[in-house]
Write a protein that binds this DNA or RNA. Sequence first.
DNA 1: GTCCCGGGAA
DNA 2: TTCCCTGGAC
Length: 210
Amino acid sequence: MLEHYGPQDWWPGESPLEIMIGAVLTQNTSWKNVEKAIANLKDADLLHLGRLHETRVEELAEIIRPSGYYRLKAKRLHNLIRHVMTQYEGDLTWMFSHDVATLREELLGINGIGPETADSILLYAGNLSTFVVDAYTARIMKRHGWIDWEADYHQIQDHFVSQVPAEVEHYNEFHALIVRTGNEFCRKTPKCQGCPLECYLPESGIQEPL
DNA sequence: GTCCCGGGAA
DNA sequence: TTCCCTGGAC
């Protein structure tokens, strides 16, 4: 994938706060729509912890509307912002200076932050070593027969952690390349023609479970 | 399993 | 028109 695409230079966001917001807004949503929502936040001058904290959830919802699930995501964003403000006085540098495992559990305790969103925030906003597993990762691994069809988030994550040196740069680049490849080729209906992983397809072809 | 939801592609 | 998208909670 790296040979095919070159470095991805991720995450596509200008600040840790913007990356955290993007991680929530992109839940089950195409990045294209997230960009519109983030542009709205910029126009409203709301890419700022303090101002976001003061903004009412209903108002925030209208601003992020293009990202879909907007009422739900407005609450989730507020939950995350509130946590940073109350626990870390709005100091993201301080927050990300903590132990990864502890911080991960803490993030998972916030309503609306699941494993993928937590790992995305830790890796891409905090530059902390954790491997992000998403729908594309699971699809690529399972379709190629590299992991069990029933494997869950943690099992897939463990597979990578056990085989890839735990450097932030590796985890960052690997996930970014998986997303790029997944987005272009490993769609719901696979388009293996021209995929950088085409030569690794199983002889039997892709066998989707019922 | 169902709900949350807009927008682009098919 | 339908289908899918860098999920998560219930």
